[in-house]
Design a binder for these strands. Structure first.
Lengths: 232, 232
DNA sequence: GACCAACTTTGACCGCGGTCAAGGAAGCGG
DNA sequence: CCGCTTCCTTGACCGCGGTCAAAGTTGGTC
C-alpha cells in the first residue's frame, strides 16, 4: 500500500486544507497520518490531555459531554471535511466517538499550529468555520431549552434529510435516507429518552408525516408539516 | 469633550485590541466610534443586515434568538472586553440587547476585517476566543437539555457569583452580589418560566443555601451544596 | 432453523415544570 | 402619601415526558 497523499484526499477541497495550494500542502502531507476508527471507537476523551487534531475524511463522529450522573449528551456531530480538536488547548473539551467506521487525517497539534501560523488563509478558514459552528451551537440551544420532544425530533429529521438526502430527488417527492444514529443516539443528541424518541417517531408515522421502512431508514412524506412542528 | 482614545480605554488590554501595540492601535482608533446603549436598547436584530462589530467597554449585553412562537431564548451573555458581531457575515445571527446601560466601541465591519487581516495576532486572539465561546456554548447545551430547573438555577448562581463576586472575600465567607438579570431574564437564559425561577430561588432560601436580601441581590451561603445540585 | 444479544416498541404510572390566576412588594411620579 | 406600574411570589391544576417493566423485532452465529 502506498502512502496516501493529499492530492488524492477525498476532502481535499472541502477541509481546511482547501486553503492551501498543492505546494503548501506538502508540509501537511508529511505531518498527517491516516487513522481508521471502528464504529464506537473513541478518538479523544473529555478532560484528558490531547496533543492531536485531525480532519475527518469519512464517517461520522460525535462530540459528547457527560454529567456527573453518567448520562452523555451529544453536543455536536462531525461530518467528512470537518475539523476535529482545538488548537492551543492542551486537553480535549469533549469526547470524540466514531458513530460509524471513520477515517481521520491526524496531525500533532503543535505542528498543526505552526502550519496555521504560516498560512493565514488556513487560519482564516478555521476562524470562519468556528464562528459558524458557534452560531449553530447557539441556535441549537433554543431547541434544547424550549422545544417539545415533537419539535426536536421533527427538526432533527429535517436536518438529517437536508444533509443526507438533500441532493437526491425533486422537491415534493418523498426523500428517503438512513439515520446516522440509533434511537439511543437520537435521544442523546436531543436530550430525550429512547422511549420518547420511539413514541414520537411512531406517531409521526401514524399521522402520515413519515414512513419508517427499516430501523435506520426514514422517508419524509410531509416536510412542510414537520417544519411547522419543528418551529414549535 | 475630547475624542476618546484607545490608550485610555477601560478594556485596552483585555479586549481584542490587547493584541496590538500602541502604534498599531492608531488605525483602530480612527476606525472606532463610541456608542452608548440605554438599558433595553438593541444593537442588532437577528436576521437583519449588519455591517458593524464592536468591543463591549462596559455594561452587559445579551444574545437572543426567538422561536416563531415569539418566546426569546438568551443564548449568550457578553461582558466588558467581549467582542460583538461576526466578521465576514452580512447579517446578524442574534439579537443584541443591553441589559444595563452599556458602552461600545463600534467598528465598520469591513474596516475591522481589514485590520484583522493586517494583524495576525489579533485574528489569532479572535480565533482563540471563538473556540472558547464554542466550548462554553456546547457545555451549556448539556445543562439546557438535561438539567432540572434546580440544577440550572444552582449553576447559574455559581456562574454569576464567580464572575461578579469572585474577586471579593476569602473562600468560605458568604459572597453577595447583584444579579445582572431580573427573574424574566433568568428564565429566558435557562429555558424556564418566571414562576419556576421564583419558586426555586425561594426554596433555596428556605433551605439555607442562599439569602435574597433584595430583588436583584443574592448571598451564597452554601456554595458546595449548590455545586452538588448543579451537577445533577 | 434455533438461539441469543441488541435494539425497538408499547403500556402504566407519576413527578416536574408549565399554565392560569390572584395577590403582594417595591419603585416612582404626582 | 397616594396611586400606578412593574416585578415578584404563591397557589391550584394538568400535561408532557421520564421511569419502570415487559413484549416484540431484527440481525447475526452456529
Amino acid at each position: 500500500m502506498t502512502a496516501p497523499v493529499c492530492s488524492d484526499c477525498a476532502v481535499r477541497d472541502r477541509a481546511l486544507c482547501g486553503a492551501l495550494d498543492d505546494v503548501q500542502l506538502g508540509a501537511l502531507n508529511r505531518l498527517g497520518r491516516r487513522r481508521r476508527l471502528a464504529a464506537g471507537e473513541r478518538f479523544a476523551w473529555a478532560g484528558d490531555e490531547s496533543d492531536v487534531c485531525a480532519n475527518l475524511l469519512s464517517g461520522i463522529l460525535t462530540l459528547t459531554t457527560s454529567s456527573l450522573g453518567g448520562e452523555e449528551q451529544i453536543v455536536g456531530l462531525l461530518y467528512p471535511a470537518d475539523f476535529v480538536g482545538r488548537p492551543w488547548a492542551t486537553r480535549a473539551d469533549f469526547t470524540v466517538t466514531a458513530l460509524a467506521p471513520a477515517e481521520l487525517c491526524v496531525f500533532p497539534r503543535e505542528g498543526f499550529e505552526r502550519v496555521l501560523a504560516e498560512h493565514p488563509a488556513m487560519e482564516r478558514l478555521l476562524l470562519e468555520r468556528t464562528l459558524a459552528a458557534l452560531t449553530e451551537a447557539r441556535g441549537r440551544m433554543l431547541t434544547l431549552a424550549r422545544g417539545s420532544a415533537e419539535a426536536r425530533i421533527a427538526g432533527f429529521l429535517l436536518d438529517i434529510a437536508a444533509r443526507a438526502g438533500g441532493c437526491s430527488g425533486a422537491p415534493g417527492l418523498p426523500v428517503t435516507f438512513d439515520l446516522p444514529l440509533d434511537r439511543a443516539g437520537i435521544a442523546r443528541l436531543l436530550g430525550l429518552t429512547i422511549e420518547t424518541v420511539s413514541r414520537r417517531l411512531t406517531r409521526f408515522e401514524r399521522d402520515g408525516l413519515v414512513r419508517l421502512p427499516a430501523r435506520r431508514a426514514v422517508t419524509i412524506l410531509d416536510p412542510d408539516a414537520l417544519a411547522r412542528l419543528a418551529a414549535g
